[in-house]
Nucleic acid binder design. Structure first.
Length: 107
DNA sequence: GTGTTGACCCTTA
DNA sequence: GTAAGGGCCAACA
């Protein structure tokens, strides 16, 4: 049994985000043990295979903004997916103050 | 081997 | 509250 790769570790952390909550790239990177490699998160999510069950749309920037430019296709998919889980998205932004994922205080 | 790029973060203005 | 600049680290050409 080989240890999980960084990508798998990241996917595992992302998959651990409960529905209706969002986490920032830095937070995921830290929990995955990558430290400041927040940039790697986006790269790992970009390598997601087909048929995956990873809620990549629950990962946003630390500012609460979606990482994609407003109006882009990926942006709409992410925003729509978040709304379906009860997360309010306004002006391409999420109120992390309310929807931010806190492992110590699960849903 | 070097140089550029990137689904970012932090500090400062 | 938003905007701009600098920095960090791994993958890619």
């Amino acid at each position: 049994m080989t240890e999980p790769t960084k990508d798998q570790k990241i996917w595992q952390v992302v998959a651990a985000i409960p529905a209706g909550r969002v986490a920032s790239y830095g937070q995921v990177a830290h929990m995955a043990g990558l430290g400041r490699q927040a940039r790697y998160i986006g790269r790992a999510l970009g390598k997601l295979p087909e048929g995956h069950a990873i809620p990549w749309y629950r990962v946003i920037r630390s500012d609460g903004r979606i990482a994609f430019p407003i109006g882009s296709e990926a942006f709409e998919v992410q925003a729509r997916s978040l709304r379906e889980e009860g997360v309010e998205v306004v002006n391409g932004r999420v109120a992390m103050r309310r929807y931010g994922w806190n492992p110590s205080v699960p849903g």
